[in-house]
Design a protein around this nucleic acid. Structure first.
Lengths: 142, 142
DNA sequence: GTACACCCTCAAGCTACTAGAGGTTCAACC
DNA sequence: GGTTGAACCTCTAGTAGCTTGAGGGTGTAC
C-alpha cells in the first residue's frame, strides 16, 4: 500500500496533481486509513503511470480519459484508440511545422541584430512589420 | 478613427482580446465617444499589430511588455531586446527538440497498430509501458 | 423612427495544474 | 506512553491568455 507521497515519487507526479486527477474523476477514489489518508495499490500506480506517460506525449486530459476508457474494455476494437493517437500525431505535426517556421524567423531576427540602439534594432523592427517575415506563422500558441 | 470591431478585424484579434489587453495594461486606454464606445487611432493599430506579431512568434505577454517598453525608448541600447529574443529562440529550440521526440514516438505507435482489439492495441500498450519508448520525452507540455 | 449590428461592463469559465493557509495523522524514537 | 516532525488533509485562490455569456446601451442606415 502506497501513500500519496510515495505514489507521487514513483510516477514523477506532484501530490496535488494526483488529488486533482481524483477530483476530475481521472483517478478513482482510493481507500483511506482510519485517519482519512489515501492509500494506493498497484492498479492505481499503473493507471497514474499511464496518465503521466500520455501527458508526456502531449495528450489532453480529455483524450486520456477516452484512452483509459478504451483500455478498460479489452474486447472493443482498437480503432478508436488508433484514431485518438492519429489525431494527436496530426496535432504534433502541425505544431512542429509552425515551430520550425518560428525558429527560422527568430534566428534571422537574432542574427541580424547589430547591437546598436533600440531605434535600429532588427528584433523590434521585425516585430513592428510582419511583411518582413519570410515565413508564415499564423497561429498563436505554436 | 477605428471602432474596436474594425481594429479587431485589421489585426486578426478578437474584440474581447483587445479589451483584455487594455485591462492588463498592454494596450492604452483609448478615447471614447460620448456614448462611451472606444475609438482607436493609428498608434494603437501599430501597437496591437506589434503585440499580435510577437504573440505569433510565441513571446509571452510579459516579454511583449518589455519589448514594447524598449520600443518606446529608441535611444537605449538594444541589448535587452536582443536578450529577450535569444531567450525566446532558446525556448523554441527546446520545444522543437521535445516535439520531434514525441513525433517519432507517436508515429511508431500509430504505425504499429494492427487494428485488432484494444487488448492488443500497440497504442495503449506503449502508453502502459514507458520502457518501450525509444526516446526520452520527459517534460510535459512539449 | 425603428431595426439591428455593434458596443458596453462584469463575472465566470477554460486547461492543467500549482501554491498556500490552517489544521490533522502517522511513524519513529526515547 | 509521549513527543516530534514529516507527511497528510481540505479548501480556496492563483497562473496564462484568453473565451463565453448575461444583460443592457449606442450608432447608423433606411
Amino acid at each position: 500500500m502506497l501513500t500519496i507521497g510515495s505514489l507521487a515519487n514513483k510516477t514523477g507526479t506532484k501530490v496535488q496533481t494526483i488529488r486533482y486527477y481524483e477530483q476530475i474523476g481521472l483517478m478513482p477514489e482510493p481507500g483511506r486509513t482510519e485517519g482519512g489518508q489515501r492509500r494506493y495499490g498497484d492498479d492505481e500506480l499503473d493507471r497514474l503511470a499511464f496518465i503521466r506517460h500520455a501527458r508526456q506525449l502531449g495528450f489532453s486530459l480529455e483524450a486520456i480519459r477516452e484512452l483509459l476508457d478504451l483500455s478498460d474494455h479489452p474486447h472493443r476494437p482498437c480503432l478508436e484508440a488508433d484514431a485518438i493517437a492519429r489525431r494527436q500525431l496530426k496535432q504534433v505535426e502541425q505544431r512542429l511545422a509552425r515551430l520550425e517556421a518560428l525558429h527560422t524567423e527568430l534566428q534571422r531576427m537574432v542574427h541580424e541584430c547589430s547591437g546598436g540602439q533600440t531605434a535600429d534594432c532588427r528584433v523590434l523592427e521585425v516585430l513592428r512589420d510582419h511583411s518582413e517575415c519570410l515565413t508564415d506563422h499564423d497561429e498563436i500558441g505554436a
